[in-house]
Design a protein around this nucleic acid. Structure first.
Lengths: 231, 231
DNA sequence: AGCTCATATTAGCTTATACTAACGTTACGT
DNA sequence: ACGTAACGTTAGTATAAGCTAATATGAGCT
């Protein structure tokens, strides 16, 4: 039996930093000190201090005055946290009656406390799911994550046929509104109209045939797979 | 609507101290510094320091060189943690396939991270249970806890009819052994024999009519309700 | 090219919680 | 009744992680 590599135990703070850096440097770029500080609601000097520690721990690469990137080890740790968060969210919604707009905070605290075993038990109880309630892909236990080409509803064109895949906000009010409008992951729509100057987009829900008018701000939060585009 | 009293948020350490003090001073006595230190695996000076802080926070009364007792507020906080722990244990065993011998550590970490809402959702999903998997009573959300007169199997007499109520250990090996022997909460037994000089106790399982021989050390871990005593 | 402003870092402080070593206190046994 | 062993507390230190104030760096505009 190969001794499974025992990653060191990380503090709650460290885990939060790694998640933030993952999000900010997702497209291969650098996460800057001030972006991390803004995302975690911390003062920039606090981030500089932690960056030094994370760097010494081998979890990130730091280019002074440029920013940071995750090492392979840091990326593994970040994806582990994201898996935990998303499995927890789905479990709480499916099995304990949470709403998709209130589940984020609970998962945010639990993700630091649960064991790997509990996460795998929850995942098994859910039938090894691939997406969380907001449509975000759940990394596998081995640290692989699906990367799909998605465009926001705001960037799609009139005539595009789309499958709504991810709702990119944690704001409860906005999430509740989307749910009321039937704009949830999995739904298929066609864009029938858009007003000029960043005006609202009109979509037709394929299932019900009803129309929805979505303002620019909200349309940017809806990530979609392009299923067909008019010639 | 009466503004529900907002208890201050307590740190993980503080929560652990309060639980320990509750356990050690349960019968109305004082919890001593060294007992707390032993239970939490800390050095005694660390406990002295925390005792000062807890005392300033109004969670305990400290009599120097004597020990400490919980205040009403401290007792509320301790019972809240115990409720969390026991609801979690039962939920993990019933709904996520944990065994009663492995569930303690998971609950120990989760109890600090879950919200009151999650605990109440779990409790509701379990049908508002009164006992955890080891038979320990679960405090109510309002902080009441059942107190039953129990005697250990080691203290009962030949001829006593008993209902096994609590298994007072967290040791996985002992718990597994008890489960194998069918010595779990709810089981009814009669003591048929006991060897002298703290020797083993022989009990008859009412349900199956089979006998079990229980050594002194293990018999002390089985808390029972006396259901009948021979004249 | 140089200046300026946004951004990053360093310096120095704070709090919580642990530790070891040194010092007090209590209580029991002779 | 007193001395000693066991127990408790104080003193001083360490680490993690935050903060503000001061300083350094780099990038874009003129």
């Amino acid at each position: 039996m190969p001794a499974s590599i025992q990653e060191p135990v990380l503090s709650r703070s460290v885990e939060d930093y790694l998640k933030a850096i993952f999000r900010l440097s997702n497209q291969g770029g650098f996460a800057t000190t001030s972006d991390i500080a803004a995302l975690l609601a911390l003062a920039p000097p606090s981030v500089s201090g932690m960056v030094k520690r994370l760097s010494e721990m081998g979890l990130i690469e730091h280019v002074p005055y440029r920013g940071v990137q995750l090492t392979a080890q840091g990326r593994r740790a970040a994806l582990r946290m994201i898996r935990r968060h998303r499995v927890l969210e789905l479990y709480l919604v499916r099995n304990l009656g949470y709403d998709w707009d209130t589940v984020h905070n609970e998962a945010e605290r639990l993700e630091h406390a649960v064991s790997d075993e509990l996460i795998e038990r929850m995942a098994a109880a859910l039938g090894d799911p691939h997406y969380d309630p907001h449509g975000d892909p759940i990394p596998t236990a081995t640290g692989d994550i699906e990367e799909t080409e998605l465009i926001s509803l705001a960037d799609a064109q009139i005539g595009d046929a789309l499958e709504l895949r991810q709702v990119v906000t944690q704001d409860p009010a906005r999430l509740r509104y989307f749910a009321e409008q039937g704009l949830v992951p999995g739904v298929r729509v066609v864009i029938t109209d858009r007003q000029p100057f960043n005006g609202p987009t009109t979509v037709l829900l394929n299932a019900s045939g009803t129309a929805r008018i979505v303002g620019q701000e909200l349309a940017q939060l809806l990530s979609c797979r392009l299923a067909g585009r008019e010639a």
